[in-house]
Write a protein that binds this DNA or RNA. Structure first.
Lengths: 249, 249
DNA sequence: CGACACATTGAACAGCATCAACCCAGGTGG
DNA sequence: CCACCTGGGTTGATGCTGTTCAATGTGTCG
């Protein structure tokens, strides 16, 4: 092994949530795991199963989604590089959703047995993972508000604001714009719209000067205006050091 | 103190998630706290604040909700007796939603400082609370699917199925029906419908034989049919012993 | 070059929203 | 004890937002 260890992204992420002790960091980085490259569309978790490995997204994107009886798909979350895909299954054994790679992606697979043994023995780590899980729940709440109480254009702009901030936070985009990792179909499944209506709304947003598009690249000509029209308040992302730490407790 | 201690509901709930050690139970029950009776509509948590106390619902009901800029309210969760209202704030300090009592309710208020000090020192307890938080997240996901991908009648029946199961699990209802703790307005804010459309949909459901109503009491003439039409699969509630325990890890 | 996935456009339609009125039961005060 | 008020529930008429179905355009990759 040379260069930065593959699990470093995860360690950094957890560390930003609840400053880890040196031991915690060391023991995380010595976790057994293997890298896996998957092609777009690969299922990493299937509803109803009990995952054996915790996948951490190293490169690429993934979505969590649920299906309704009549075949409708609702994307309930977008995962970006560095995100552990399976915090839920650290605490619950049965998957009640699917996780699918959006495009070609590489993941680190950590056997849950090992991860649990380690984490349960170290309160600092359970705590960090629990924070991680709570932030995901917080994002879910905002998505519910987005789908439930905003119109098509607001929903899309709100989603773009979120993606843009999350990608900037992890150094995967700059203020100049970001590359949208999803098709219009997938945008529709994230915002509870049809692909057709997503298309029309995007065109309208572009004509209205809310967004600019260049292939899959999205940028905001006037970021403040976009934030305002979508009612975007990044607080729900809980980024930065505003969380509860062991020492504060 | 005599009779069952007020925090017993919480202890039982956590215990059902991750079998607690005797110490864990004892230390929970000796937590300092005070009872508080509140009238309907009282805010127990306000967005943007940092709650000082963890409220546990002893009697009555509460909702979590978020507001959009244009004044739309989205209820993101319904809390029933025994639910801790604030698991999120065990791990995140800033509230990004509101919590409001639905009708007259009584809560136990536990100072967060005490609760955190206790919980952080006991991995078994962090674990139990983390499971509790993950189950809430799991319910949120299902609500997102509900609002995003089901029609008005399905949304309502799905919500009724959920409430009915949760109330039965905690002994607050029987198979004969349950008392709906919310108005049609609140049903609308939970399902992203207007009160008017909730009303029409309820009438249609009644005429169609899907539900029966008697004042605020709801029952299912044909439970299996209702479950099927709403696409209700109780797995997302993670009730019963299907969770990850320390010993399994 | 052809195949395929994705994006774009049009026309007709449906589900739910909106606004406005009315009803009913329970509670309050004169 | 009744008159009134208020919060919730019910109903009607109308229209907008987003859906549906179907066709056409466009870029990429074997």
């Amino acid at each position: 092994m040379h260069g930065t260890p593959p699990l470093q992204v995860l360690i950094d992420k957890l560390d930003s949530y609840a400053a880890l002790a040196d031991d915690d960091r060391r023991s995380l980085s010595s976790l057994s795991h293997f890298r896996k490259a998957v092609s777009g569309g690969t299922y990493l978790v299937r509803e109803g199963t009990t995952p054996e490995h915790c996948a951490v997204l190293l490169e690429g994107y993934a979505i969590r989604h649920k299906l309704s009886l009549d075949g409708g798909r609702q994307i309930v979350s977008l995962q970006i590089p560095g995100d552990p895909l399976d915090v839920q299954h650290l605490f619950l054994d049965r998957a009640d959703h699917n996780i699918q790679a959006l495009g070609p992606a590489t993941v680190a697979m950590i056997p849950f047995a090992d991860l649990r043994a380690l984490v349960m023995a170290r309160p600092g780590l359970i705590h960090a993972f629990a924070i991680c899980g709570q932030i995901e729940a917080s994002i879910l709440q905002e998505w519910l508000l987005n789908v439930g109480r905003r119109n098509a254009q607001q929903r899309l702009v709100h989603l773009f604001c979120e993606i843009s901030v999350r990608l900037e936070n992890t150094g995967h985009a700059t203020r100049d714009g970001f590359i949208l990792p999803m098709t219009q179909e997938e945008l529709g499944d994230s915002t509870s719209l049809t692909a057709v209506h997503v298309n029309r709304s995007l065109m309208a947003l572009e004509r209205g000067g809310w967004i600019e598009r260049n292939g899959r690249t999205i940028s905001f000509p006037n970021r403040a205006a976009a934030i305002k029209m979508a009612g975007f308040n990044p607080q729900y992302l809980h980024h930065g050091r505003q969380r509860v730490t062991l020492t504060e407790a």
